[in-house]
Amino acid sequence: MLSRLSQSIEPFHVMEIVKQADQLQQQGRDVIHLSIGEPDFPLPEPVAQALTQAIGAGKTRYTAALGLQELRETIAHFYDSRFGATVSPGQVVITSGASTGLMYACLALINPGDEVLLCDPGYPCNKTFVQTAGGVVRTIQVSEDNNFQPTLAEVQEAWTPKTQGILLASPSNPTGTRISSNVLNDIVDWVATQGGFIIMDEIYQLLCYGSQPRTLLSQSPSGQTRDHCVVINSFSKYFGMTGLRLGWMVVPEALLTPIEKLAQNLNICPSTPAQWAALACFKQETLDICEARRAAFGNRREFLLRELPNVGLHAGSNPDGAFYVYAHAPYGSSQYCSDLLQTQAVCTVPGKDFSQKEGEAMFRISYANSLERIEQALQRMGQFNCREI
């Protein structure tokens, strides 16, 4: 007998279209992937060396449930040196990817029946995390006018007596947009007055263009404490460690014991070799590699935004982070993405994963591919879009 939860979870459609693309590749088609949100660069060499050294040295036994102490201390120091944010190592929790951190946060903060605000469009798995904890999703329909990020007025309008918190993302998936510091500070302060919580997804934090990366953990101009906020981050996107499944949380001290119990029961500990490898992420040589890669993503972003109108497509916003463009589909995005894949072997993602209201109007393009392949993809898309429909 299947549980109601297992039956209510919707499929992740991006994975479905990628399966179709894989089938075409097996048939000999030259498929260009502008779909999955995974860096195309290999593991940075210092991290790869640290990983093999850890395995060679037998560093494969369990760590503490909250993670390797050396890594927790290193991350806390990184917040101080990079952002001027004071974080205690005791507030840092190492997780098996950001998804586990999001799940821990939801399980620690949400009771059955609690409402939690999510933005539409947004990352589809967030809904599942909330539902797994018994929460009820209430959506904020964000708009192009505000770069697909919520305003304080929209949060206040959506908040009800049953609302207990909000999950935000900056930069966000699928839009690649960031929320402004002023608006974020206003939302953080107002939610505190309601006794609510904020879960902040910052997994694309260091992949930003045009201005410096930011964190919610920096001091609030109002002096408001941020003990109601949980920040989620990951080694997957900026550091390119996707398959090693490692992330972290920064949590208020009051949440540390509940989350430790969840970690002990649900996960034992994150991957030990991956944690030892992650220490190398904060070496200057690794940061230099990752910054060069960020610059390459920025060049791809500029090329894509410049050339999209030339192939009959238009971005729905100004993406200043991550590696996505959320674009208007010429017609229903599910059919458009399917047609584009079958006829031109270009794999993009329909908007139905990310938005219940306007998913058919939009689709996501990932520029986590080489500039050469992106250029080839645009040529194919231009050929497809110029045909008579």
Rank of each mutant, 00 (worst) to 15 (best):
A169H: 11
K237W: 06
N310Q: 12
Q194G: 07
I203G: 04
T163V: 11
L340I: 02
E73C: 10
T257S: 12
A296K: 14
C119A: 13
E70C: 00
G28S: 11
Q20W: 06
L118I: 11
D189H: 07
E302R: 08
E302V: 11
N185F: 15
W248L: 05
T177V: 02
S211C: 07
Q342T: 07
S333C: 11
A254W: 09
G165Q: 11
G176W: 10
E375N: 13
L246N: 05
I17V: 09
N385K: 06
R387N: 06
S96W: 00
K127T: 15
A105W: 13
D22N: 07
L255H: 14
L371C: 05
I203F: 08
A254T: 13
E372T: 14
C119Y: 03
L109R: 09
T193R: 13
S181E: 03
G240V: 06
Y331C: 06
N267K: 08
M200E: 09
R72D: 00
S338C: 10
A169F: 05
F323S: 03
Q156G: 08
G122T: 14
N182T: 13
A263I: 07
Q376Y: 02
A105P: 10
F282M: 00
E372S: 07
F282N: 03
K283D: 08
K162A: 14
L340P: 01
T63C: 14
C106K: 04
R306E: 14
V14Y: 02
V251R: 05
I259M: 15
Q264K: 02
H228I: 04
A98W: 00
D320E: 13
A322I: 05
D120F: 05
I94G: 00
C208T: 15
H228W: 05
L2S: 14
E10D: 12
Q49S: 01
T52F: 11
L244W: 14
N126R: 12
R293Q: 14
N299V: 08
Y209L: 06
L66T: 15
L206R: 13
A254P: 03
S234H: 10
W276M: 00
N369D: 15
V136P: 00
L109P: 08
S218C: 15
R82Y: 03
G165W: 02
P124S: 08
I187T: 08
V250E: 07
E307P: 03
Q131F: 00
A108P: 12
G298N: 06
F83H: 03
Q49G: 00
P39S: 12
T177M: 00
Y204D: 13
T215A: 10
Y79M: 09
L118V: 08
G312L: 10
W190L: 04
Q383V: 13
M1L: 10
T100L: 14
E73D: 07
I179C: 08
A322W: 06
